[in-house]
Design a protein around this nucleic acid. Structure first.
Lengths: 189, 189
DNA sequence: GTCTATACTAAGATAGAC
DNA sequence: GTCTATCTTAGTATAGAC
C-alpha cells in the first residue's frame, strides 16, 4: 500500500476520534487504530508521544476555536446584549466536525482531567460560563450557565433528542437557561 | 494484620468508589485497591468476577433505591401533581453515600455503557425522565427533564457550586426545569 | 468460605534498525 | 517516517493453602 506518507498525523486524529466516540477512549487500543490505518503501533508513537496526546491534539483544536468566540465576546461593548449571540456562536461550534468531540469531552471528563491540555480547556469553559451568566454571583445563575452548555451538547445527541431539528431545540433551551430571567417562573421561595 | 474476615466485600466497594471517584475508573488499578486493603489482587477476584463487577454492584444498589422512588411515583393517583415531590425524592437520593456514585455515573457514561448493569440502569433513568416531563412529547420538555437531573448531579459538586446550600440551589433549578411551563419566558419563536 | 502464589494475555510505551 | 523487538504493568484466571 502507500509507503511513507505525510498526512498520517491527520489520519490518526480522524480514525482515533471515530473509534473513541464509537467505543470509548479506554476500550480503543492503539493496536486497533494502527490496524485500521495499516501501520504498526510504533508508527503512532512517532506522531504522538502518548495515547492521550492524540486526543489532546483534538482538544487543542477545539480550544483554539473557542478562543476566537471568546475573543469576539470580549470585544463587544455591551456584554449583556451580546450574551444571546454568544450562546449562538457556541452552539455553532458544536455542529459539524466538533459535534462528536464535544460529546466525548462531556462524557469523559475524568479521562481528560489528567491531561496537560485539560487545564487550559477548563479555563476557557469557565470563561464561557462566566460570560453566559454575565458574571452574576447568584449560584442558580451559574449552575444554569453550565446547564446551557450541557443542553447544547446533549441536544446534539440523537439518542437524547430524536427530532430532526434537535440543534434548534437545544439552542432554544440553552438560550432560556442563559437569559437573565431564564426559567424564573415559580419556586422562588 | 487481620486475617480472614467477612466484611471484605463491603470494604472493597468503599475503597474502590473512593479511588474511582478520586482518580477515575481506568486510572485505578486493582493492584492499587488491593494494596489499600492489604490483600492481593487475587483476593478481589474471589469477591468480584471482574473490575467492572465492582462498580456494577454499586450501580445495582443505586438502581434498587431508584426502584423504590419509581414505585412510589407510579402509585400516585395524579402523576402531574406528584411531579414536584418526585423530583425532590430523586434529589434526596443524591445526598449522602450516593453523591459520588451519581457523579461517577454521570462522568463515566462510556465506561458504564459496556456493562451488564448499564442497560437496567438506563431503563430506570428513562422512566425517571418520562415521569419528570410528564410524558410530554415536546422535545424541549424532554431535554429539560434530563437537564433537571444533571442540575441535581452538578449542583452537588463543590467544584461547580461553591455555596454551602448547593443542594437546595440545585433542587430549585431542577424544579424549574421540571415544571410544565419551566423556563418558558421568551424565545418561543 | 477466604485468601495467596503464580502465570497468561494484551495494553501502552521505548530503543534502535532500516 | 516506519518497523521489529522488547519492556512494564494492567486485567484476568486458576490451583491450592488455610
Amino acid at each position: 500500500m502507500a509507503g511513507r506518507r505525510s498526512d498520517t498525523r491527520e489520519r490518526i486524529q480522524r480514525v482515533a476520534l471515530d473509534l473513541f466516540a464509537e467505543q470509548g477512549y479506554q476500550k480503543t487500543s492503539l493496536r486497533e487504530i494502527a490496524e485500521k490505518l495499516d501501520v504498526t503501533k510504533a508508527a503512532l508513537y512517532y506522531h504522538f508521544k502518548t495515547k492521550e496526546d492524540i486526543i489532546s491534539s483534538l482538544v487543542e483544536d477545539l480550544a483554539a476555536s473557542l478562543d476566537q468566540v471568546l475573543e469576539w465576546a470580549r470585544a463587544q461593548q455591551d456584554p449583556v446584549a451580546a450574551r444571546r449571540e454568544f450562546v449562538c456562536r457556541i452552539a455553532a461550534l458544536m455542529e459539524g466536525n466538533f459535534t462528536r468531540l464535544w460529546l466525548f469531552i462531556h462524557e469523559n471528563q475524568p479521562t481528560l482531567k489528567e491531561m496537560h491540555v485539560s487545564n487550559a480547556f477548563e479555563e476557557r469553559m469557565k470563561a464561557v460560563f462566566e460570560l453566559i451568566c454575565g458574571g452574576e454571583r447568584d449560584p442558580a445563575a451559574q449552575l444554569k450557565a453550565r446547564l446551557a452548555v450541557v443542553a447544547l451538547v446533549l441536544g446534539n445527541k440523537p439518542q437524547v433528542l430524536a427530532a430532526a431539528d434537535r440543534s434548534e431545540v437545544a439552542l432554544r433551551v440553552a438560550l432560556e437557561l442563559a437569559s437573565p430571567h431564564g426559567g424564573r417562573a415559580e419556586a422562588a421561595t
